[in-house]
Amino acid sequence: MKQPVTYTLYHPKWYRRPMSTYWWTKRWRYLRFILRELSSISVAWTVILLLLLINSMGDEAMYAGYLDWLQSPWLVVLNAFALVFLLFHTVTWFNLAPRAMAVRLRGKRLPDWAVAAPNFIAWAVLSAGVVWFVLKGV
């Protein structure tokens, strides 16, 4: 049993509010932050996938096994999830870039979009490159 604290004259009795474990459900922006943090798991997962891919290359049987594994329904669902979170991760971080980098040109701070845009452009160019590379092989 917790004893209630009694007031002693001239001694302030402060009340400290406990912070709920579920504080991140209180506001959409907090939840978005938690999701952004969680999305790094998708990033890690994608890295593992890529490492497995690299490991299987050069060995026909292993590569075929890897592709088979990729086509299993639960993995397709998992990767779909991962893709959504990856996109979320990318977009949120790119949008935060202007906050972390105050880029100045001739003494004037560049507007946020001007700092964020190159990230998105680089992303689009790289993605296009990958698509071109993949489709070329078809």
């Binding site: 506001r27 922006r29 932050f33 906050r99 972390a100 105050a102």
Partner: peptide, 22 residues
């Protein structure tokens, strides 16, 4: 951890989150 809420609620647009990341 860059929750960023400090900058949203700041009534004077100080952007503390930006300051910390920079």
């Amino acid at each position: 951890t860059f929750v960023g809420e400090c900058s949203v609620v700041c009534p004077k647009h100080v952007d503390p989150a930006g300051a910390i990341q920079q």
